[in-house]
Design a binder for these strands. Structure first.
Lengths: 185, 185
DNA sequence: TCTTGCTATGCAACGAGTTGCATAGCAAGA
DNA sequence: TCTTGCTATGCAACTCGTTGCATAGCAAGA
């Protein structure tokens, strides 16, 4: 149930509403976690009733009011507890890999355009991450003490970048493999 | 609902029982999909009642009897239909990345041993995959026509290998970053 | 005025995945 | 004989995640 913890971390980085969290999960947090607004609202409600977060009604002008959530003591404790527990290396689920092995029993060449679509999506994500890296981590911080929040955010972003690069290289490999069945066989 | 399709692909590669499928999902299929025996039995039962798979009771000696499943016509059709549908590039969920960003609000150095554990697990998986590659794809096939099943299985395995290598490199990067907070700050 | 679109929150139903437990055959060794 | 351990299948309950829908404020433009 790490969605709870992902939300807590995001709220520690910056308090915000459910709607704002949902948009963060589409952007910066999106390279290591995804969630819909439904999940987020449901979890926020539960964490509120458990005293993990505080709520504050924030009137806005030009747009509907919002509820701003911030992490309360028990929420911080729950996060800390979780941080000190070991977790299992997560299991992978790649639909595309199922398709690739399944293509052997259908038409391998028919999969080429699908793999190209995925390659394109990963290329776009990589460009998005690289733009974010240049924007947020392009110049060194003002020679102050080590900023853990900034450094660790950057480390996670580098993970997203490495993942996308790996995927693009692998999909090129797959395309080359599929290409051999187009003319041959 | 790609578990259905993952099972169909596995049964096309080789018919087998629910128990055997569960073990394949711990091994070769495990590098792109995971499933417990509960999920597998449930899906097999549904696919059987939908006519996607055929069942055959197989008496065994020295161990309990088993039900051997194989793909029937409608199952093959369902797989083919799915193969020709576009799917979305899957979303990622990395608990460890949540922990890394969360560590900024706790003790970054305390995360080092956890990251090392994960690095160890990925190193073991990589060794497992490389051993499988040497065993199953070490020597070229007997100069026959291109074997799509074999080539595509190998391409997917190369993806697993690339993933583990990327993870190990990234975890080293993370460890270096965390190390800077041990003495400093 | 009406529609479109973004912000903002939420319910209800369903489907997928996890966990704990139960049963049973058979082999091997203490 | 009793326990341990692997093969083999399955139920029930629960949690998590997805999808469709609903409501509402407000701005901008047709």
């Amino acid at each position: 149930m790490a969605l709870d913890h992902a939300i807590l971390v995001s709220l520690l980085e910056k308090p915000g509403s459910g709607y704002e969290l949902a948009r963060r999960f589409e952007r910066s947090i999106g390279y290591f976690w995804t969630a819909t607004h439904q999940q987020i609202y449901r979890v926020l409600k539960r964490m509120e009733s458990d005293g993990w977060v505080d709520v504050r009604d924030v009137p806005q002008q030009g747009r509907p009011d919002k509820k701003e959530y911030s992490v309360a003591g028990p929420g911080r404790d729950a996060l800390s507890t979780w941080l000190h527990e070991p977790i299992e290396p997560e299991s992978v689920r790649h639909d595309l890999a199922v398709k690739i092995r399944g293509a052997a029993f259908d038409d391998p060449a028919a999969l080429i355009s699908e793999v190209q679509r995925h390659r394109q999506a990963h290329t776009e994500r990589l460009a998005h991450y690289l733009a974010g890296e240049a924007r947020d981590f392009g110049e060194p911080p003002e020679s102050g003490p080590l900023d853990a929040e900034r450094e660790l955010q950057h480390a996670v972003l580098r993970g997203g970048i490495a993942y996308e690069r790996m995927m693009i290289a692998w999909l090129d490999d797959v395309l080359a493999t599929l290409g051999r069945f187009r003319a041959g066989q």
